[in-house]
Design a protein around this nucleic acid. Structure first.
Lengths: 226, 226
DNA sequence: ATATTAATTGGACATGTGTCCGCTTATTGT
DNA sequence: ACAATAAGCGGACACATGTCCAATTAATAT
């Protein structure tokens, strides 16, 4: 378990014996006491946003609407969530944690069953595709509006990348794939079609089904093992 | 040669004997007479924008600045270019046409020299990466602000996709790769890391060099041929 | 309890995007 | 040359995002 920018992440690295890696990324002073009115406001904001998003769609709702519905000033809203994207990420926080827990559990199970690492990777990608499918609007909003300084990456993406990297390294260790490859870059390449905006383009622009996307990606991964 | 939304594209399909395909996509009434004052304004807008972008960077310039520099009203500016993205695409129009011509010529040469289709594809991807590298700011702005209705895709992307598809089908015809694959989806997957926003993430977020991106992508393509 | 302090609040404000519409001007037909 | 007319023009306006800061209020120390 580690934290990036205030969000919790399960570490899949435990599975790969890399637990020693220092993962102290940002935000060392997280649990600084939050004033209770502030906390109440945060919760009102989140539930108001969830409500509005559900009834009118993410893109049709603006920050002013949310602040009005939550009965706080705009300044208060922006103090908590620098933009709509951060708000969306916060709304998904719980579901992301759940998803990560499930992934961790399933990969653990597969490892105990001696399932090949590449197969685990294929399963992970499929799971990720379905997660994307469910949360496309929120994910797109988040990836659009959050600014990333050079050298920085979106918090959820770091976890995905680490997981893919871990599975690839596991595959090397199990002699499933050749070791002389650029694994960080390879992981990013594999994940590229699952970037929210690209995924939406594939789905809505091209009309591909999640199954079709999954099949092609799994085919590519399968080819990694000669 | 065909046109999408007013921009010209060289057809690489000629190389693959698919010239019969009907490519009448949109805009049948393109060369509708443009009033000469309108044309003069369009040119002033484009050169003013190019000037401002060059000196201050794409993201630092806004539409009001451009309209002021071009000495036209904002209404006029928006009449020609619905948003900054379209303006950026228009600015790249010439260079894209040049790039496409070069690609077409080189692929033709390689085909005459009996270069393997997969090698041609690798060359194409490398060329595309360098084109992206050169035009990242304009491409990102364009891909961000242009709205795409479901079933629609960005104009430059269609050409890229067609080219990759053509080369893949060529590779099938030459027995370089297996025929039982989902080629449209595969082409999109290969191109995913080159989507402007993803490419920028790879470059700036992760610090990968264009060469590194190219190498990994070429490695993947190489694996397509067993 | 009360004073002190520091976080929090909320609306006014600054900026950017994109639309609207009355006025102007180039083009076309006579 | 001269209407007639359709296209083009441009600034005011509507709306969204995000910032700022004076006033308020919760937490802490006395």
């Amino acid at each position: 378990m580690f934290a990036i920018a205030g969000r919790r992440f399960m570490s899949t690295l435990e599975l790969f014996g890399m637990n020693d890696l220092t993962l102290t990324i940002l935000n060392p002073d997280l649990p600084r006491h939050e004033r209770c009115d502030a906390q109440a406001n945060r919760e009102r904001i989140l539930s108001a946003a969830a409500q509005l998003f559900a009834t009118q769609g993410v893109s049709a709702v603006n920050m002013a609407d949310i602040s009005k519905a939550a009965k706080v000033g705009q300044g208060t809203l922006y103090r908590r969530f620098a933009n709509k994207g951060e708000l969306c990420l916060a709304l998904m926080d719980h579901q992301m944690a759940t998803f990560q827990a499930q992934v961790l559990a399933q990969l653990g199970r597969m490892t105990r069953d001696h399932t090949a690492k590449l197969v685990q990777l294929q399963w992970f990608l499929d799971a990720l595709i379905h997660f994307n499918e469910t949360h496309t609007p929120l994910l797109c909003e988040a990836s659009q509006s959050i600014y990333f300084a050079p050298g920085t990456r979106p918090a959820p993406y770091i976890w995905q990348h680490m997981t893919v990297m871990g599975l690839l390294r596991g595959a090397v260790a199990a002699n499933e794939i050749a070791p002389d490859q650029d694994f960080p870059m390879l992981a990013d390449t594999i994940l590229a079609p699952l970037q929210p905006a690209v995924f939406r383009l594939l789905r809505d622009g091209n009309g591909y089904t999640p199954e079709r996307i999954s099949a092609t990606l799994q085919g590519l991964v399968g080819r990694l093992g000669d």
